[in-house]
Each structure stands twice: as structure tokens, then as C-alpha cells.
């Protein structure tokens, strides 16, 4: 007999016992360990996904902040540009103002220098002209320069018109017929008499004239009653020369 029923039942029992034991000591434990691992992996994956989402969120936040920073930087840059531009304009304006000021001062100093120079020039020119004129007069004729000056002065007296003469007369009355003739040189007495007589003829009255020697002029003679003056001197020509030189310098500065 191939089948031993006792063995069959024993094997059934053995098999069921083995099922029971393996269920508790093998399958249950292994499957629970695998389930725990799966849960762990799932939780790790979920955690990783969460972290990924957090990272994406952080990245978005970062990009947004970056964008905001860029915009703010652009704004700051623009405002800084405007400010710099305004400051630049202000500085340029200040510099221009300072340059103008300096230019003005420089012009003033130049003008002062020019004035000083011209003044010196005038004085020297006057002296030189006087010397030159004296030399010229002495070279050109045999008469003295002083004599020519007196003759020229007398010529001017003689050429006074009626109105002018009346005017002189009125002034002379106010100053009790007293007048002064100043000259840069000593007028000889003969010439003093001639001058006095000529002026008396011109105004029609006897005039008391006081002759003084003055160094106010370079070379010349002048009749003074109160504020009225008439005469001839080199100053007029020198002043003319000065005016011309001034005019030339003004044109140079303007240019």
C-alpha cells in the first residue's frame, strides 16, 4: 500500500504546524519589515517631494526677491543718475560761476593794471611828449616853445566869441576881476604884461592876474576864474592819446 494513512494525517499535522510557524516567524515578520520599509521609503519620497516643493517655493521666492531687487536697483540707479545729473549741473554751474567770478576779478585786475599802466604811460608819455615837443619846437624854429605856447594861448583868447567874452566878464565880476594864470614854466614879465593886456582887451576891463607856476600839467598855460578855464597844454593831446589807447585795449579785451 503506497498510502499510509497514519503518515498522511501526521504529514497534514506537520504541514499545518509548519504553516502556523512560518506565518508567525517568517511571513508575518518579513512582510511587516517590508511594509515598514515601504512606508519609510514612501515617507522619504513624500519628504523629498515636500522638500522639492519647498525648494521650488524658495526658488520662486528667491527669483521674486531677485526681481524686486533688480527693480529696486534700477530705481535707485535711475534716481542716482538723476541726482548725479543734477549735482553735475550744479557743479558745472558753480564752476561756471567761479570761472565768471575769476574772469571778472581777472578783468578787474587787468583793468586796474591797465589803468595803472595807462596812468604811468600817460605820465611818461606826457613827459616824453613834452621833451619831444620841446625838441621839435626848438628844432623846427628858433623861438622857444614857451613863446609859442603863449602865442597859441593868446590866439585862443583873441578868437573868443562875444558870448564867451561876456560869460568871462560876468565871472570876473563875481571874483572881483581877479584871475589866475598857471603855467608849467616861468612866464617872463614882458609876456605877463602882454597876456594881461590881451585879456583886459578881450573882456573890456582891467583884470588883476596872478601868475603861478604849476606842475599839474606837462606843458602849457591856463587862465582860471572860479570854475572857468581856458588855455592850451599838452595834456589835451596826451588825454586824446590815452583815450585812443584805452579804446584799443577795450577792443582787444572784448575780442
Amino acid at each position: 500500500m503506497l498510502i499510509n494513512w497514519f503518515t498522511v494525517f501526521a504529514q497534514i499535522f506537520n504541514f499545518l504546524l509548519l504553516v502556523f510557524l512560518l506565518k508567525h516567524f517568517l511571513y508575518g515578520r518579513i512582510i511587516s519589515a517590508m511594509n515598514v520599509r515601504e512606508e519609510k521609503i514612501a515617507s522619504r519620497l513624500q519628504e523629498a517631494e515636500q522638500k522639492m516643493m519647498d525648494a521650488e517655493h524658495e526658488r520662486d521666492l528667491y527669483f521674486q526677491k531677485n526681481k524686486e531687487n533688480d527693480e529696486r536697483c534700477a530705481g535707485l540707479f535711475a534716481s542716482a543718475n538723476l541726482e548725479a545729473e543734477a549735482q553735475k549741473k550744479e557743479l558745472i554751474e558753480n564752476a561756471r560761476r567761479q570761472v565768471d567770478e575769476m574772469k571778472k576779478r581777472w578783468n578787474e585786475s587787468l583793468r586796474e593794471e591797465r589803468d595803472v599802466f595807462l596812468s604811468n604811460l600817460r605820465k611818461r608819455a606826457e613827459k616824453q611828449i613834452y621833451i619831444i615837443l620841446g625838441k621839435i619846437f626848438s628844432d623846427l624854429s628858433n623861438t622857444k616853445l614857451e613863446q609859442n605856447i603863449v602865442e597859441t594861448f593868446l590866439g585862443k583868447i583873441k578868437s573868443l566869441d562875444h558870448t564867451e567874452r561876456n560869460h568871462i566878464k560876468v565871472i570876473l565880476k563875481e571874483s572881483y576881476n581877479k584871475a589866475v594864470i598857471s603855467s608849467t614854466y616861468e612866464i617872463p614879465v614882458e609876456q605877463q604884461h602882454i597876456i594881461t593886456a590881451e585879456i583886459g582887451d578881450a573882456v573890456g576891463e582891467t583884470v588883476e592876474i596872478r601868475y603861478i607856476n604849476s606842475q599839474d600839467h606837462i606843458c602849457g598855460i591856463e587862465f582860471k576864474v572860479k570854475n572857468y578855464r581856458i588855455g592850451w597844454n599838452v595834456d589835451d593831446y596826451v588825454k586824446f592819446l590815452e583815450r585812443e589807447v584805452n579804446k584799443t585795449l577795450e577792443e582787444e579785451l572784448a575780442g
Binding site: 503506497l2 498510502i3 499510509n4 494513512w5 503518515t7 498522511v8 494525517f9 501526521a10 504529514q11 497534514i12 504541514f15 499545518l16
Partner: peptide
Amino acid sequence: PPTGSLSTTAALAIC
């Protein structure tokens, strides 16, 4: 091998 016994295979088949 116990599976070489018809009793064992029968027992398993009965199970």
C-alpha cells in the same frame, strides 16, 4: 525527500 512519499503528497493535496 518526504515528497517522494504518496502519503506526503496526498496529505498536501488533502490540505
